[in-house]
Every structure is written in C-alpha cells, then in structure tokens.
Computed example of a mutant assay.
Amino acid sequence: MAVEHPVAGDTIRAAEESRDALASALERAGLRLPSLGLDPNSYADADPRPLVELGRCSPLLARELAAVIERGAAR
C-alpha cells in the first residue's frame, strides 16, 4: 500500500503560514526578525520538508527576543 504524502504546494503553504504566524506574534511583541523566511533548500525535494529560517538579527534584537521569551516562560 502506497503512503500518501501531502501535496508539495500544501506543505509549503503550511510552512508559509507558520512563518507568518511567527512574524505576527513577534510584531505584537514589538519585534521584527529582518531575515525571517523559508529556507528554499529545505523544500527543493519532491517530498519537501520546509524549514522556517529565523535569519540574522542585531545583538540588541536578540536580547529583546530573549526577554520576551523569558517573560512568556515565567507564566
């Protein structure tokens, strides 16, 4: 019996939605990761496994992001 895989487009769209949800959550916290995106190499296969790439940010933004995460973890 063949195993059905999600259509590549659906898999990539789901990854894009995840990226967008993260960007929105960061924006609500007053943060923006300038290089947030999908890693194109991770979905170049017939059975894509897209990865959200957080990218690079300034040291100040990294500290701000850490503080937001710490506040959320303290709940």
Results as ranks from 00 to 15, higher is better:
residue 1 M to P: 09
residue 1 M to R: 11
residue 2 A to E: 14
residue 2 A to H: 14
residue 4 E to N: 10
residue 4 E to I: 12
residue 4 E to Q: 13
residue 5 H to N: 10
residue 5 H to A: 11
residue 8 A to L: 00
residue 8 A to D: 02
residue 8 A to P: 01
residue 10 D to W: 06
residue 10 D to N: 11
residue 10 D to I: 02
residue 11 T to E: 03
residue 11 T to Q: 00
residue 12 I to S: 04
residue 13 R to G: 04
residue 14 A to T: 15
residue 17 E to T: 13
residue 17 E to W: 06
residue 17 E to K: 12
residue 18 S to A: 15
residue 18 S to R: 14
residue 18 S to F: 01
residue 18 S to V: 02
residue 22 L to Q: 02
residue 24 S to M: 05
residue 25 A to Y: 03
residue 26 L to H: 01
residue 28 R to H: 09
residue 29 A to Q: 03
residue 30 G to K: 05
residue 31 L to T: 05
residue 31 L to P: 00
residue 31 L to D: 04
residue 31 L to H: 02
residue 32 R to P: 00
residue 33 L to I: 03
residue 34 P to Y: 05
residue 35 S to R: 07
residue 35 S to L: 07
residue 36 L to Y: 01
residue 37 G to L: 00
residue 38 L to W: 07
residue 42 S to D: 08
residue 42 S to N: 08
residue 43 Y to S: 04
residue 45 D to R: 13
residue 46 A to E: 10
residue 46 A to Q: 09
residue 47 D to M: 08
residue 49 R to K: 14
residue 50 P to E: 04
residue 51 L to F: 08
residue 52 V to T: 08
residue 52 V to Q: 04
residue 53 E to A: 14
residue 54 L to F: 12
residue 56 R to F: 10
residue 60 L to E: 15
residue 60 L to V: 15
residue 60 L to K: 11
residue 62 A to G: 10
residue 62 A to N: 09
residue 63 R to G: 10
residue 63 R to W: 13
residue 65 L to Q: 03
residue 65 L to K: 03
residue 65 L to N: 06
residue 66 A to L: 12
residue 66 A to P: 02
residue 66 A to C: 07
residue 67 A to E: 15
residue 67 A to Q: 14
residue 68 V to E: 08
residue 68 V to Q: 06
residue 69 I to L: 13
residue 71 R to C: 11
residue 71 R to P: 01
residue 73 A to P: 00
residue 74 A to W: 10
residue 74 A to T: 14
residue 75 R to L: 05
